[in-house]
Design a protein around this nucleic acid. Sequence first.
RNA 1: CGGGACGUGGCGCAGCCUGGUAGCGCACCUGCCUUGGGCGCAGGGGGCCGCUGGUUCAAAUCCAGUCGUCCCGACCA
Length: 621
Amino acid sequence: MGQRLGYLLDQAKEVDFTSATGGTRGKGSSMKLSQLYLPTLKERPAEAEVVSHQLMLRSGMIRKLAAGIYTYLPLGTRVLAKLNQIIRAEMNAAGAQEIIMPFVQPRELWEESGRWQHYGRELLRIKDRHDHEFCLGPTHEEVITDLIRGEVRSYRQLPINLYQIQSKFRDEIRPRFGLMRGREFIMKDAYSFDVDEESSAVSYRAMYRAYGRIFARCGLRFRAVEADTGSIGGNFSHEFMVLAETGEDTVVNCSHCRYAANLEKAEMAPVYNEADTGDENLSAGLKEVLTPGQKTVEEVALFLQIQPRDLVKTIIFSTDKGPVAALVRGDHEISPAKLRTYLGANTLDLADEQLVVEATGAPTGFAGAVGLPIPIYADHSVKGMSGVVMGANKKDYHFKNVNIDRDVKIAGFTDIRMAEEGAPCPKPGCSGRLVFSRGIEVGHVFRLGTKYSAAMKAGYLDAEGKERPAVMGCYGIGVGRTMAASVEQNHDADGIIWPMPLTPFQVLILPVSVKPGEVWTAANELYLRLVEAGFDVLLDDRDDRPGVKFKDADLVGIPVRITIGPKALQEQSVEMRDRRTKETKLIKLNQVVDEIKARIRNEMDEIGAALTAIDQAAVDL
RNA sequence: CGGGACGUGGCGCAGCCUGGUAGCGCACCUGCCUUGGGCGCAGGGGGCCGCUGGUUCAAAUCCAGUCGUCCCGACCA
């Protein structure tokens, strides 16, 4: 585990955003490709499915050791170092302090929080030689809370915010997609402790803002969205999503206002059942109809010759507060996360067959809300529906002509359906529509409240001398995943395209020949000059054919490539190529430094503008 | 954990159905040649065919078990 300290080693320099040049301070770092451990792959490794995984393997950034466990090679490590540098700068600026907590954690701590039982098989448990039980830390709430409770006694010592950049281990059911979902992965995690909710909200806003700055400084296109808190607990959270076509998550945002949420959480302005079913007579009474073996909405709709929207689905869930039923229109999807939040339940799972039979008296597929003895919650869109079809709680039967208001006892109407693209924005007065896009979750901020501090007795004495639990927040960034997300967002058919702030090197010098001669001499002179000027420079001094070097250059994705060939050199010129735009231009040797500076400044100015926008935006959380 | 697939030189794969000599491309080594987009020619090295057991005169190939890996689902930074 000693190598973990390696994260502290930081060769990457701080990029100076304030300088007019947008360049870097001091001398740049340098490397000759012949000395660099850079095993590139021509072919796609069979194990890699997603593009970031393929490209990071092919470009020699990472190698797999076991399922979901990776080594970072020199180039990957350089990217990590730059990313970590940005994270540290922003975390420190936001008032957090860096620490390093143990990776191996004792069972007792996890029993105190109750998670030794609840965390499940994701928690990798091990025994030492004395048969004492430990786990590999999947997260560090327990350790940090233990640390704090030992030292913090007074409100005068709060607030405090501590963070670390460390490996975590989660024995994922199915690791996949390379760094996107590993079992061992690097995470930046921060924990804040405050005297009360109000102060905790201040800490939260500081982190929210810091996160925005971090991802903006990485040069990534991202969005902060409202999110569900899931099993970590708490009641308020945001996810930071890097936008990429290949993202696993759906990001919902408003076409007009700044509303944004993840799919399971996204709300819609209530739409009441505007579509009357037409033929059905409102006064018609309930009618039982035979629907042998017709279980799904599609089957029943087809069988009865109606539209799915004329049906109401009844879904049974088991929660820590007992079984409940949820009602949505046949053509709608339910969001379990919304229901769980609405109920204030800790757990909510789809009922198994046995519970469905117990609750409804019928096998799955025939559940209905009429006369159902458990609490029933319905989506807004169900309100006022009449003449609809619903399960009859009896095998092979459904009801027709159900009138919700008349026939069903609803415990509450609320928004529990999955948002749909084009639905009206939930913000009052906003006329926008919901738009969907794809994203990769790279950061998540939570307000935890006192869940852990209360359970583990991390309290302090307030001004009145009264013992109170500290109010916590926790804030994570998937560091390796952010790196992968950058590749997902920035690549083309030839390889990676690094954003300037994360790139392992800013400039690649590619002499067409390394035989003694003018080309080679010019390449070396330029190399020294660019390093002196402060750039991070890689020199491809390998004695290979130019084609090989060009292919590797594109694969690895250094943003600026300077090609030195005999013809242009006659004119005291070299070729400068922009990896992103593929623009190529001849520039004079004595212009190279200025041209590269301009190129870097160009990209940094965009980032600067994004930062300004973040700083000026109101954080109305 | 349920469903699917795959383990054959460093990488990508064929061979397996129909048992008998382990093969191709890339990479690697030597020499020549070439030098602006993964050149060309010649020579060469490297594989317990994931592992264990069974069937057989004989197993990469058939059978059983086991381990590993990947994909789809339920979970997550």
